[in-house]
């Protein structure tokens, strides 16, 4: 019961941070006026990444769809975030199975975290899924292959920013073990 409430609260906090703070920041790397795409830092995929291991794939898909739609409503991009997030939710189980030594059902009442996965697998897991999410999102948003370079730059820059945000979240909200 506790995990449900915890995830519920986390949903609202992450969506609020995304919508009210991060959406207002249009990042532009290096302040040279032209040449580099501007983009918004995204953190909301983190919510799907941190859901417990036991959530079935169907549940993940529905949760991802709802999360994506709520971001869409705020960003005026009906369907695009939802599409990318559902894709991320679908691939999550496969990526976790590939990265973890034991089968997923062996982890009782746990969620993916640095503590039970260690840094490298966790970051691989996050980076892989976020690259896929951002690629899907920006390809649909731009919907043209005219300037592939621009697209790739935007994906790379945005992914790095998102990963930095995720790392800082993990560092802030993981309980340190007492030595």
């Amino acid at each position: 019961m506790g995990t449900i409430i915890k995830n519920f609260i986390r949903f609202f906090i992450i969506v609020a941070v995304q919508v009210l703070i991060l959406n207002k920041i249009s990042l532009r790397w290096w302040s040279q006026p032209y040449g580099f795409p501007i983009f918004i830092p995204y953190i909301y995929p983190l919510f799907i990444l941190l859901l417990p291991f036991e959530v079935p794939v169907a549940g993940l898909l529905v949760i991802g769809f709802i999360t994506g739609l709520s971001i869409d409503a705020f960003m005026n991009t009906p369907g695009i975030h939802a599409f990318a997030t559902v894709l991320l939710a679908y691939l999550r189980t496969n990526v976790l199975n590939a990265l973890l030594p034991k089968h997923l059902s062996d982890y009782k009442a746990q969620a993916p975290s640095v503590k039970n996965m260690n840094w490298t697998p966790f970051l691989t897991y996050a980076a892989f899924l976020i690259v896929i999410h951002h690629t899907a999102y920006f390809v649909i948003e731009l919907w043209s292959m005219q300037n592939v370079g621009y697209l790739i730059l935007k994906i790379i820059a945005s992914t790095i920013t998102t990963l930095l945000l995720i790392i800082s979240y993990v560092m802030l909200f993981t309980k340190q073990q007492s030595r």
């Binding site: 079935p56 898909l61 994506g68 649909i140």
Partner: peptide
């Protein structure tokens, strides 16, 4: 194939939304 079917359905819903806009 329930998961796959659900996945495809949701993605189609998203694509319809995108196409509408």
């Amino acid at each position: 194939f329930f998961n796959l079917i659900l996945f495809i359905t949701l993605e189609i819903v998203c694509l319809v939304l995108i196409a509408r806009t």
